[in-house]
Design a protein around this nucleic acid. Structure first.
Length: 571
RNA sequence: CGGGGUGUGGCGUAGCUUGGUAACGCGCAUGGUUUGGGACCAUGAGAUCGGUGGUUCAAAUCCACUCGCCCCGACCA
């Protein structure tokens, strides 16, 4: 294509309301335009890059046992009501009614619809496994869309759903998908990490997130460089690195100490000159309306996802100051676990052989030499802390680091969570009907595109990996007015086109600086410059966007062939 | 939903405090000179200042309401 004809309006200045590098570059390079908060139009170049990713996804899905279908975006409420997610999704779901008043939604995902569709037939076990996917838009009315295409309200997703006879079959299908995902993200040029994840609202009992390390990612995880263990912080079961010394022999009795004005953990550690892990913090939580006293080490923070799981509740919040006073008779800064009437949930890192300092339950006092088991007991003991950097890897014992990433893919084992309520059964060997054992596998296409740009850019602009580049090569004639140069450029452009190469010709009558800067901004992997030196030597300059120093001079005759070779041998 | 911002030619902004009928840069159009890292000259088109209502002789400017967008938080793949 001729550059002057491509609808890719560039922005010279960095758009102010773009909050990520990828978002800024997509706007600046004319890949996308925003039409509303969290809703984007893909322009020519953005669409082409998106389609490259989709093509790679299709190839890998197809070759790993999945088949493509296409489900509607607009779907009736019934299956959603059957699984309870019509209410569960709440305001995040775009809901609407048709002219007869029948409720519909714009699909935020498609578990219900596939399950209902597959379940409406009675398949034999002989036909399993079945793995269906589609690539289509999803709609979620996010509370706060942000980070460009990374968190938007309309987004393109590849979602696959597998139907197996049993857990063994699901495990095999899951492994195939896991392999496909690794191939996909490798081929689009991402460095990524599959991590163990919480399965969130989708449900199920085992899952992995594929994350791309990025500063503005929204997914926090803990990873071990030594053994490769990696898990979402919501889930990670690492242990703290430091522990209080166990008390051997006689245990000192609790000792009430006046601590006027001392409330925070920081103040307590300063007042007693002890490390924070020798102090316990006690927080009153309300989980599904029931109060729980949460007991953690002073240096830990609660992880509400773990808490919900541990007390089997759907929602929780911290109690207000008033609720604390009513339930425990003290102000929040002096709450302690000893002698309280409410249930206690104690983090498993709290030892029963160490002396802790705790709030005394009386304003202005703390108690030291408090032992778990002797002075207070736990109603529930569970892992409810948030993992920090430096914690001990639960697999190999080395130190963990934490990072944030963009979640580009997610795989779940769903089990029968959807097949049972939707009565999606197959006929087994013995003639009985059994629910499908399902899996679900998503890839955010737009997010993946954004992640590619996050990982492949420099101060000048995008540096497309060959596999995702909207065009592979840009031919840049400098001084278009010079006929020899212009004709040579056109002739190279024509032969590349004929060879099936996606090539752009910068046909604009612009100065060299503008052409170079635009070529860098748009990020096509190969740049061919035809300038005054061509008049003298008959050579084109072929350079890689990724590494301008690797500039090679190629004769006009050999250029086409060597460019094709460069494209074919690209990583 | 709470807190904080913001809205002025296509884009980025100034003007608002102290009301007097819209300015600058980029881009765009035409002609000319240019052409190896964001050239120059000349000419020109383009905004009833987010919307509605109010105050006033007079509103981009003051007041009220409203809508959009952005940031922080809660929430979430």
């Amino acid at each position: 294509m001729y550059l002057s004809k491509i609808f890719a309006p560039r922005l010279r200045e960095t758009p102010q309301d773009a909050d990520t590098l990828s978002g800024q570059l997509m706007l600046r390079a004319g890949l996308v335009r925003k039409s509303a908060s969290g809703i984007y139009t893909y322009l020519t170049l953005g669409l082409r890059a998106k389609q490259r990713i989709e093509d790679i996804v299709r190839e890998e899905m197809n070759s790993h046992g999945a088949q493509e279908i296409l489900m509607p975006l607009l779907m009736p409420a019934e299956p959603w009501q059957a699984t309870g997610r019509w209410e569960l999704y709440g305001d995040e779901m775009f809901k609407l009614t048709d002219r007869k008043g029948r409720p519909f939604c714009l699909g935020p995902t498609h578990e219900e619809l596939v399950t209902a569709t597959v379940g409406s037939e009675r398949h034999s076990y002989k036909e399993l496994p079945l793995n269906l996917y589609h690539i289509t838009n999803k709609y979620r009315d996010e509370i706060r869309p942000r980070f460009g295409l990374i968190r938007s309200r309309e987004f393109t997703m590849k979602d696959a759903y597998s139907f197996d006879r049993d857990e063994t079959g699901l495990e095999a299908t899951y492994q195939r998908m896991f392999e496909a995902y690794n191939n996909i993200f490798r081929r689009v040029g991402l460095t990524f990490r599959p991590i163990q994840a919480d399965s969130g609202a989708i449900g199920g009992n085992s899952s992995h997130e594929f994350t791309v390390e990025a500063d503005n990612g929204e997914c926090s995880y803990a990873a071990c460089d030594s053994c490769g263990y990696a898990a979402n912080v919501e889930l990670s079961r690492a242990r703290p690195a430091c522990d209080p010394d166990p008390v051997c022999g006689a245990r000192p009795l609790p000792d009430l100490v006046a601590t006027p004005g001392v409330h925070s953990i920081e103040q307590v550690t300063a007042c007693f000159a002890v490390p924070p892990w020798a102090v316990l913090k006690s927080l009153l939580y309300i989980a599904d309306g029931k109060p729980w006293l949460v007991v953690l080490r002073g240096d830990d923070e609660i992880n509400e996802v773990k808490l919900l799981k541990a007390v089997q509740a759907r929602e929780c919040r911290m109690a207000t100051d008033e609720e604390v006073s009513t339930a425990l008779g003290v102000h929040p800064g002096s709450v302690g676990p000893v002698g309280v009437a409410v249930s206690r949930i104690v983090d498993e890192s709290v030892r029963d052989d160490a002396a802790y300092i705790v709030g005394s339950g009386r304003d202005g006092f703390h108690t030291r030499n408090v032992f778990l088991g002797r002075d207070f007991t736990s109603t529930v003991t569970a892992d409810i802390r948030t993992v920090h950097a430096g914690d001990i890897c639960p697999v190999c014992g080395h130190s963990l680091h934490t990072a944030t990433g963009i979640e580009v893919g997610h795989t779940f084992k769903l089990g029968t969570k959807y097949s049972v309520p939707l009565h999606a059964n197959y006929v087994d060997e013995d003639g009985s009907e059994k629910p499908y054992v399902m899996g679900c596998y998503g890839i955010g296409i737009g997010r993946t595109l954004a992640a590619v740009i996050e990982q492949h850019h420099d101060e000048k602009g995008i540096i497309w990996p060959m596999s995702v580049a909207p065009f592979h090569v840009i031919v840049i004639p400098l001084n278009k007015g010079e006929d020899t140069i212009w004709h040579a450029a056109c002739s190279l452009y024509d032969s590349l086109e004929e060879a099936g190469i996606d090539v752009v010709l910068d046909d604009r009558d612009e100065s060299a600086g503008i052409k170079f800067n635009d070529a860098d901004l748009l990020g096509f992997p190969i740049q061919v410059v035809i300038g005054n030196s061509f008049l003298k030597t008959g050579n084109f300059e072929v350079a890689l966007r990724a590494d301008k120093k690797e500039k090679v001079l190629v004769s006009a005759q050999a250029a086409c062939e060597s460019i094709i070779r460069l494209i074919q041998t690209a990583p």
